[in-house]
Design a protein around this nucleic acid. Structure first.
Lengths: 240, 240
DNA sequence: ATGTATAATATGTCTAGTTGTATAGTATAC
DNA sequence: GTATACTATACAACTAGACATATTATACAT
């Protein structure tokens, strides 16, 4: 259900943060750290909490303080927490176009009010719903649920079941050209089921892209949600 | 001592009561609720029962609590368009929200290898580093850490400290026009410190946008990371 | 230049109050 | 029996403000 609550006190994470910065030479030996008040502002905590963190650093012999003057760097830590950013650097431009895609299921069902509004159908008309899993080099990176206006594009559900790609399936029902209209991005955490598919842990950060695609005339042809395993993938936008 | 046998638990009716009061603007955005102890007194229950009710409100995103400080009222979610020319203030005002930004800290320090590569400096040259927090109607929505090539734009750190916006600060050192070159999007979960700033819980989903902006000639002027409180904001891409 | 008074900053200490968490216990409903 | 709802107590973690004390920066007189 919930992410295992790490019970690291705030002051400790602040201490680690400063330790890392000293280790990375953001502050050099002899240099004065920002004042307690500024650090408190920066970390969004009370001055006393910062003092607690600084006390820990002082006890480690990393800094020392002089009343009225400031806090100064004494030495670098022998070892400090490694910087995060150990990431898979997978570049992809367009959400949902990845090599390696497995169709998990394709169903036909009546459009919900929401589906109908987005796909410009009447509630109750048929929509094709597909669930799919995308891979990059055998590793699952994205889980998608897409809805198509089956009522307007009869035979699409069957085509989706047989075709090897969405583009191909759409082509077989007469849509030669479809483009993404909008994408809305948020972050979520993985449910149990999502974690299973994406081979990650429950509560892992996921990037959720909700998209709407249309044909050349702007008529919607697909509306769906794609969950990316954020630890394995990065969406890159080139504002060219 | 006799409690009337009702089907709904006491904590739920307390939650409903508070919910109604917040809805009725009895308590406004950002305002602090009475302490748990006082609420317990007022409703004639144990503090833990009040806590149970407050937990429900927090899960609905209505309130947020800070240990040692109190419980505060939050605001509603909103949409945030991502485009080449990122103008936070304009976007929020278009959405009918009152934008705000507070500079948490501005420092100058030596560029790390990573900073240097991205900003096209030599390692060790000066970079200006700012931490800032953006608001919509008093509710924090984004936390940012930005790095600027101070070596190439002397005086920028001071300008950032005084100016009311990044655009203004860059303008004062001769950068009239800057645009976003790339944005990389991932999802993460909130660390303790991030949760504090964004007034959310530890482990809450965050949308992380890493961006690189350049001037008219393509020379980098800013490189930074922005963490969006995903429960309060959605990034929207218009593939126009 | 040098010394001095003064204001502004910065850290040190103290008191009080608030939320977070852990543990234990009681009554009631199913 | 065993959850569920609630009470009771204690302590940890953090905030908030006030004030003392040490240091630095500034202005000014000499």
């Amino acid at each position: 259900m919930t992410v295992p609550a790490s019970k690291t006190p705030v002051w400790r994470s602040i201490a680690d943060s400063l330790k890392r910065e000293i280790g990375d030479r953001h502050y050099v030996e002899g240099e004065k750290l920002p004042t307690e008040a500024r650090l408190a502002e920066r970390f969004g905590v009370n001055r006393h909490t910062v003092r607690h963190a600084l006390k820990a650093l002082a006890e480690d012999g990393l800094v020392y303080s002089r009343r009225g003057a400031g806090v100064f760097v004494l030495a670098r830590p022998l070892d400090y927490p490694l910087s995060r950013r150990v990431r898979f650097h997978q570049n992809l431009m367009d959400a949902g176009r990845l090599p390696g895609k497995t169709m998990l299921s394709v169903e036909r069902r009546a459009a919900s009010d929401d589906d109908a509004r987005r796909l410009r159908l009447e509630p109750g008309q048929l929509v094709a719903v597909s669930h799919s899993l995308s891979f990059a080099d055998e590793t699952p990176v994205a889980l998608a649920e897409s809805r198509f206006p089956e009522a307007r594009l009869p035979g699409l559900a069957d085509a989706l079941r047989e075709a090897s790609s969405i583009t191909e399936a759409l082509g077989s029902v007469g849509i030669e050209d479809y483009t993404r209209r909008t994408t809305r991005l948020t972050a979520t955490t993985a449910t149990t089921a999502q974690a299973l598919h994406l081979q990650t842990r429950e509560g892992a950060p996921l990037l959720l892209a909700e998209s709407l695609s249309g044909d050349g005339d702007g008529m919607p042809v697909e509306h769906g949600q794609t969950w990316f395993a954020s630890e394995r993938i990065t969406l890159t936008l080139n504002h060219a």
